[in-house]
Design a protein around this nucleic acid. Structure first.
Lengths: 357, 357
DNA sequence: CTGAAAGCGCTTACAG
DNA sequence: CTGAAAGCGCTTACAG
């Protein structure tokens, strides 16, 4: 019954006949220690299976190496990939990731943040639950710990001095680019399909769609913005709304890939051939997009790269907290061209003609 | 330029005119403290924005509240869901999750485990990188910290005294049940479709398929085990192999859902109607399965529930390390019946007849 | 019911 | 190049 006495610096020092300080210096790679001493100490640490106690070091140094990562929905591959990217960079730089998930509950989010704060993270990366406010976050994390918010803006009920960095997607510019692409290949009757207008990301994407049409001198009519639940099933069910427009749409920019894939199914059932006589563009580039029939053109946000970027941004802020102006980084999403928009659809007047090439 | 002096128990004690010990007792909910004192102390903590320093408490108490979670592939929704389940239970029980991901690299896995060990986790949940061995894991985590391995067995090169718990899926029993279901609805010409035989999960699933056939007195022929890359594309391309069998297969148990969905596409292109004149069963119950055309019958492993279960198992072991016999829990996967196997296919001899009902 | 003191395992000036 | 001492923020017997 040997109680598992934890090996400490003292044990190593005693075994080597040196002081604790010397062993600590070896650990920290100080050049002050004689090479022989260093080797002897290192050998002894290996021999005894010494494990560094970072909590003790943190306490003494008053700086931790932990970063809190709080995610609204880990089951969503987009956020899971984001988390993987964050952890990749943090791990490579010697930080440990404290994970928390809120499941879109602001109450849970508050609890999780409070619990993680007790571990003295040097910073926090937060993909917030819907409708989270600046105030409720500040209340639990204080003003001192650097915060990077991802993907959703915090609701700002009153002007506060609270400062944090933001990393988000260029929803508006992305959908504008997608719409412009459809215009460039000849479409003039383009709908925005799917999503609910009370979601901020949907509003931003719709705005991008309208930007593109207006810049081309095309009038934006309300009935060309078609609402659906952002799911495959509802998107499939309402496909006929696109063909019922006057004139019928020849292309649709969709709220996201789920909607776009559902729409393609619905169009097929109605006897249309997406990619041939109708162009569809999605948003997200989920794995299924590439293997759809036809493969779906979409906007890719590379969530893993966003995670890496978020970690970099936060660590910059951690190492330079004096640079106080708040940063807001909006990342362009990239159009991935696949067959759902090619072979290029002919201009509306020639819709019945065979595709070029 | 006020350097952010961290609020400690001393500050609270001084402000209240009591000793540090008393404040600590309040913090820990001791009944020894007078109610008035307690209220005064609690109010002062709120007023000053006191944040508990768990690292200091951990150091003193010599027990941490951290659990390390190391995942082989966070980008895979199966493992992301698992992680979400783990975090859910750990958070609810007052533990913090230290996240690490190995990306299927044993080297990265070793580094990550080593780094997390410095934070004194009370236990480790590991979904190991492929071909990880018992020895390499033990070398880095030692014999003292409880370990729960998920999903894949560790390679055991030599008998070692190292003990850990295991949570895995009932691949063999699950596929046996799937195959028996197909037998029960009249099929006699059932193939096992997809996957590579050098993967342990594929071997286990094939074994379950063979178990069912043998128990029914049906001979298992090698050509009825069809290998494909476990992807939708390859599965689609090789669908004709099923119809080329003598006699042609009327049903297939697939290695996983990706394969099954690809197979359904391939069969459709060959003029068959999955769910009507051919039965298909997948494995995993990925989100797409439910919205396939037709919806895919499959085996569900509920990864999020597995995560919760893993956390429970580990915490049991943490609280009772004396119970030394190793536990190995194999969870049954559940058949989810959807249209890809119903309306029930008639027995082979009557294949051309209309479905019942 | 409350306080003084010791100690968890480190790091860091400060001497030598 | 090495050692003795103090201290990070807690908790825990032990007195009173």
């Amino acid at each position: 019954m040997n109680r598992p006495h934890r090996i400490t610096l003292n044990d190593i020092a005693r075994a080597c006949g040196v002081s604790r300080s010397t062993v600590s210096l070896v650990l920290r790679g100080s050049p002050l220690v004689h090479a022989n001493t260093r080797q002897q100490v290192e050998a002894e640490m290996r021999r005894q299976g010494y494990v560094y106690n970072r909590a003790a070091a943190t306490l003494r140094q008053r700086v931790s190496t932990a970063v809190a990562l709080v995610i609204n929905d880990l089951s969503n591959p987009f956020f899971a990939d984001f988390a993987a990217g964050v952890d990749e960079v943090l791990g490579a730089k010697g930080y440990v990731t404290l994970l928390g998930s809120s499941n879109e509950s602001r109450t849970k989010q508050r609890q999780v943040l409070g619990s993680l704060m007790e571990h003295n993270p040097v910073g926090i990366i937060l993909s917030p639950a819907e409708t989270s406010s600046v105030d409720e976050i500040e209340l639990v994390i204080g003003k001192e710990t650097p915060l990077l918010v991802f993907n959703r803006q915090l609701v700002e009920t009153q002007p506060s001095g609270f400062s944090y960095d933001f990393l988000g997607l260029g929803n508006r510019a992305g959908v504008r680019a997608a719409t412009e692409y459809l215009l460039s290949i000849g479409h003039r009757h383009i709908a925005f399909y799917g999503g609910h207008a009370d979601s901020s990301s949907c509003r931003e994407r719709r705005a991008g769609y309208q930007d593109a049409l207006r810049a081309s001198g095309i009038e934006v009519k309300a009935e060309w913005l078609i609402e659906t639940t952002p799911t495959r099933l509802d998107a499939r069910a309402q496909a006929d709304a696109l063909l019922a427009l006057e004139p019928a749409a020849t292309a649709a920019v969709c709220y996201n890939d789920a909607v776009a894939l559902g729409l393609m199914l619905g169009l097929t059932q109605l006897g249309r051939h997406p990619g041939n006589d109708f162009a569809v563009i999605g948003f997200d580039d989920i794995p299924e997009a590439a293997v759809g029939i036809p493969p779906l053109s979409t906007m890719n946000a590379d969530p893993r790269a966003r995670g890496r970027q978020a970690a970099e941004l936060l660590l910059q802020r951690v190492s330079d907290p004096l640079q106080m102006e708040r940063r807001s980084v909006i990342v362009d999403v990239q159009l991935i061209e696949r067959e759902s928009t090619s072979p290029l659809v002919a201009a509306p007047a020639e819709m019945a003609a065979s595709p070029p090439g």
